[in-house]
């Protein structure tokens, strides 16, 4: 196992470097930030000065050299727009995203496994139909609908929750609830599908025939087999959230990394884009490693 992790860490480091190189060169194909940063009527001289100041006139390979040298010195550059260290900008946003994503993923996992298992156990029954129906509607509805309707209902009309922002635990309720809905629908369906297959396989039938009670059947035998695709899908959803929950962040004024990333891409604030990708990529790589380890824990036959 230690050998596996060591090899994996090395491979991941290589992919991270590849990713950064790729992003560095590709993002610079999308124009430079000069026209976006300066007012429309800025003269050609001031544009030139801006480019000179931020090294945008250098050949791209020279710019890359500077960047690599700085990163080796643990300097990830300054944000052009914010005049602050890019890494600081990203980390302060990422902490919010991390809490939001972890809480939501935890809730999704627990709820999907419990409700999905029950739906599979009573497949075709009323509970199954209702759970499937509601979760599918939630998963395919535009998320801003749910967010805005929730604000109008719970904040403006009922006055139960604050509309948006941060500060108290109540501010977290609506963002987490809205973020929960879509992944929950998909995770629930995957749990349900895998569990139906697992429950109808011969060994579970045998256990049933032997008179083992309902809940141990589900949770010990079937679940173990069904979990592989489930954690994979939840992992993918978590990766999406670690890249930022854009709709939730824009509507609820939540200072996460998703809106930061989008704004930085649209404004060509390359250093922030690179720092943000670096941080979220590390989180995603780590998560995928944990998932792979979880496979072999769940199913000892799987070895790498």
């Amino acid at each position: 196992m230690r050998h596996f992790i060591g090899k994996r860490a090395f491979a991941s480091a290589l992919s991270l470097i590849g990713l950064i190189v790729l992003v560095f060169f590709l993002s610079r194909l999308t124009g430079d930030p000069t026209a976006l940063f300066l007012p429309l009527d800025a003269s050609l001289e001031s544009r030139e000065r801006f480019r000179e100041l931020h090294g945008l006139n250098d050949p791209i390979i020279v710019q890359f050299g500077h960047y690599v040298w700085d990163v080796l010195n643990l300097d990830f550059g300054d944000s052009i727009r914010k005049a602050r260290p890019a890494l600081e900008v990203v980390l302060s946003a990422f902490q919010w995203t991390l809490i939001l994503a972890l809480t939501t993923v935890f809730l999704v996992t627990v709820a999907a496994i419990i409700i999905g298992s029950l739906a599979a156990f009573y497949a075709g029954g009323v509970f199954d139909r209702i759970a499937t129906f509601l979760s599918l509607i939630g998963a395919s509805a535009p998320d801003f609908w749910i967010a805005i309707v929730a604000i109008v209902l719970f904040s403006v009309n009922l006055g139960w929750l604050p509309t948006s922002g941060t500060g108290t635990i109540w501010h977290w309720v609506m963002p987490i609830a809205v973020l929960f809905i879509r992944p929950f629908g998909l995770a629930l369906q995957v749990v349900r599908g895998s569990m139906i297959t697992a429950l109808s396989s011969a060994y579970v039938k045998t256990a049933r025939a032997k008179g083992v009670k309902a809940s141990p059947i589900i949770f010990v035998h079937a679940l173990r087999n069904a979990l592989l695709p489930v954690i994979t899908v939840i992992g993918d959803l978590a990766a999406g959230m670690l890249n930022g929950a854009v709709v939730v962040e824009t509507i609820f004024g939540f200072p996460g990394v998703g809106k930061l990333m989008i704004d930085s891409i649209l404004q060509r604030d390359f250093t922030v884009v690179l720092a943000a990708i670096m941080v979220s990529a590390m989180a995603i790589f780590l998560m995928n490693l944990l998932i792979d380890i979880a496979y072999s824990v769940l199913d000892p036959r799987i070895r790498y």
Binding site: I151, V156, T163, S164, T250, I251, F252, G253
Partner: peptide, 18 residues
């Protein structure tokens, strides 16, 4: 000063007194 990019949320904040 607080910041909300969604139009209807800004209107809602004044309506709720936030």
């Amino acid at each position: 000063y607080v910041f909300r990019s969604d139009d209807s949320v800004r209107a809602a904040m004044v309506a709720t007194g936030e």
